[in-house]
Amino acid sequence: MFELAIQTTVPVVGYTLENFLLLLIAAAAGGAFGAAIGALPAFIFTGFVVFLGEGIAILNRQLGGEALAVGQGELAAGLTGIIGFGAVTGPHIAFAGGVAASAYAGKKYPEMEPDGWDYHFGKNILYAFGTKPDILAVGAVFGVFGAVFNQFAGALLVVSGTGVTDSIALTVVVSAFLARVVFGYPIVGKSAGSSILDMSPFEREEPRTATDGGEDVEAPMEHEGRLATEPWLPHQYRWSGVTAIGLVGGILGGYIYILTGSIFLGYAISAMSLLFLQLGVEKIPVTHHITLIGAVGAVVLLPDFGPVVALLAAGGFGAVSGLLGEVTQRIFYAHSGTHVDPPAMAIAIAMVGVAILEIVAVLPNAGYL
């Protein structure tokens, strides 16, 4: 049952110069594409492409074929590994390019902010910037950065034959922090509550002032009057609710893996569900970090403990990942002016834990690493 359809990273070692240049040129276009259509729409495309690729891989296995690996050129590997997680819709390229574009526009074009947007415009990952050349150029630069950083991280972050973490998730996080530095936003920002984890200023609808940490106080305060504390998801930040959706999503991600052998199919379904969030449907939960880590929980326990225990473990893994996303959003998202992705932070941290437990022989494998 434990077989992987793809690898999410391809080491730089063994690349020809021509192939590397091909990747860089495509990544520039992929990052610009993410800026053009918006970061969240770009990630939704990731979900659709990975869903199709994983579906083809499942069909291939059902028909008696072997699991495909990136580099062989087969259709499923190309869709999931090279397209879905590659230069076209890879989150580290297209989504990250869109995030950087929003950060840039938040400083350069505050007048573009749409009516009804209550957060800093630099956090608006739903916004499509169309064909504005300078914004597309920002997306392109960060797309190239994402491709290069991911390649080197995938090659270097290996211990005892196991990747230390998900290099794509790590790249999304590093790219977002780089955008904060480049465009002059605080790395963390100033908390308006009793601690950095306190979301009560949001509940009281306290406004931000000109000296709060969301902007450089030396510059004009474009966002004065915005909320002092801006939770990543206003409908998904209470500990009880996050835990509940974590258990549910983790179990579903694990169940999908147990029945299909695909770690990434649940992730793809979660990503596709964000189409409804993009279209304005209220209270759609964000769960791709939950279903993915839930599937990993099933992967690591299924061989030794069977499907029932693996499914319960998947729920626990999903809840932990959901809570990691909430903790990281309270620290790194809520108090500054740009998007730093809580699901990517949760995945990167969770997979570090999985890798360490595999290296010290507590877990029998490290999931998709």
Rank of each mutant, 00 (worst) to 15 (best):
Ala67Ile: 07
Ala96Asn: 08
Ala147Val: 09
Gly106Thr: 05
Gly98Val: 15
Phe183Gly: 08
Pro133Ala: 13
Trp117Asn: 05
Ala105Pro: 09
Thr162Ile: 15
Leu156Ser: 12
Thr171Met: 08
Leu79His: 12
Ala101Ile: 00
Arg61Phe: 05
Ala94Arg: 02
Tyr119Glu: 01
Ala192Ile: 04
Val70Trp: 07
Val159Asp: 08
Gly97Cys: 01
Leu79Phe: 12
Gly55Ile: 15
Asn150Pro: 06
Gly146Arg: 00
Gln72Arg: 13
Ser167Gln: 15
Gly146Ile: 01
Ala176His: 11
Gly189Gln: 00
Ile125Ser: 10
Asp118Thr: 00
Phe48Thr: 12
Gly73Gln: 08
Ala179Val: 06
Leu59Ala: 10
Gln151Ala: 06
Leu52Val: 14
Thr171Asn: 07
Gly73Ile: 09
Ile58Asp: 01
Phe48Leu: 14
Val99Phe: 06
Val141Lys: 14
Tyr185Pro: 08
Leu59Gly: 09
Leu52Pro: 09
Glu113Gly: 13
Leu68Glu: 11
Glu74Cys: 11
Trp117Pro: 05
Phe48His: 06
Gly65Asn: 12
Ile58Cys: 01
Thr80Ala: 14
Asp115Phe: 12
Val50Ile: 09
Gly106Lys: 10
Phe129Gln: 03
Arg180Asp: 03
Ala128Cys: 03
Ala103Ser: 09
Phe183Thr: 11
Gly81Phe: 06
Leu156Glu: 10
Asn124Ser: 00
Ala153Ser: 11
Leu157Asn: 09
Leu79Glu: 12
Gly98Leu: 14
Val88Leu: 10
Val99Gly: 04
Met112Lys: 11
Ala176Pro: 11
Gly47Tyr: 02
Val148Ser: 01
Leu156Gln: 11
Tyr127Gln: 04
Ser191Val: 00
Ala100Leu: 02
Leu68Gln: 13
Ile125Asn: 07
Gly116Lys: 03
Pro110Thr: 07
Val88Asn: 03
Ile58Gly: 00
Asn124Lys: 00
Ile82Ser: 15
Phe121Thr: 08
Ala94Glu: 02
Val148Ala: 07
Ala57Tyr: 14
Gly161Met: 03
Glu66Cys: 08
Ala176Arg: 13
Ala67Asn: 10
Ala147Gln: 10
Gly78Arg: 13
